[in-house]
Computed example of a mutant assay.
Amino acid sequence: MNDLMTAEAPSDRDRVLEAADHLFYSRGIQAVGMDAVRSEAGVPLKRLYASFPSKEALVLEVLRRRSERWREGLDAAIAAAATPRAKLLAVYDVLDDWFHDDGFRGCVFINAFGELGAVAPVVASAARDQKHAFREQLADLVAELGAPEDLAPRLALLAEGAQTTAAIDGSPDAASVARGAAEVLIDASLTSA
């Protein structure tokens, strides 16, 4: 049987999420109305609201899926690295690949927090939760390396700063600069440990 025939077509919910993700990331959350999402997804407005009763619910699900995809991609890169040091540096390699993507517009969580953090506490909380999970993942890698625990927030700050710099400057080189700084920090922390 043909693989195309056995593959299920995306559900209305999935089409709405993909459309919202694309539109929110490329144009900004506040600039995109539910009708634009409906139009891009090709679903009736009634079905969109059956899956997502509010724009906030849609934004939260887009952020949840983005967090999941980020974690999966990062986990794969870390798993492919041979040493604890290489696992930490793989974070910056993932950023480098992402920053070179033609559609890169910065971190969706930083963008969402900037747009809605002051007026949508649940969106602010989702952004904070994702950043906290990233710092925790780095803390686990730092512990595996046997480096002092204060290395993790420093490496997280480098990664977050690289994301912001790459988006604002339009320079994918921010990842390689951050990677170089991470190497210096990792080596210095191991020397002092």
Rank of each mutant, 00 (worst) to 15 (best):
A86M: 04
E72Y: 05
R47C: 10
I78Q: 12
Y49E: 07
V94G: 10
V91E: 09
A50V: 02
V94P: 02
L60H: 10
W70I: 11
V91P: 00
E68P: 07
L95M: 13
K55D: 06
P84D: 07
L74E: 13
K46E: 13
A77K: 15
A80G: 09
L95G: 03
L63V: 07
L95W: 05
G73Q: 11
A90K: 00
A79Y: 06
L60E: 02
K55N: 07
A90M: 02
L63H: 00
W98M: 13
F52P: 07
A81D: 10
L48P: 00
E56L: 11
D96Y: 01
W70R: 11
L48D: 05
R66N: 12
P84Q: 09
E56D: 10
G73W: 01
F52I: 01
K55F: 03
K55Q: 11
E68A: 14
L60D: 05
D96K: 02
W98C: 06
G73R: 12
E68Q: 15
A81H: 09
E68H: 14
D75N: 12
A86S: 10
V94S: 08
L63Y: 07
K46R: 15
L88R: 04
S54A: 14
R66T: 13
L95P: 05
R64D: 12
L89R: 07
A81S: 11
A76D: 12
V59L: 02
L63I: 08
A80S: 13
V59D: 06
R69C: 11
A80Y: 05
P53K: 14
R69S: 13
L63Q: 05
R64I: 00
R64N: 08
S67T: 10
R66A: 15
T83K: 02
Y49F: 15
A57W: 01
P84G: 05
R64L: 08
Y92Q: 06
V91Q: 09
A79F: 09
T83H: 04
A80F: 04
R85F: 00
D75W: 08
A77T: 06
L48T: 00
Y92A: 06
V62G: 05
A86I: 08
A90W: 01
E68S: 15
L74D: 10
W70M: 12
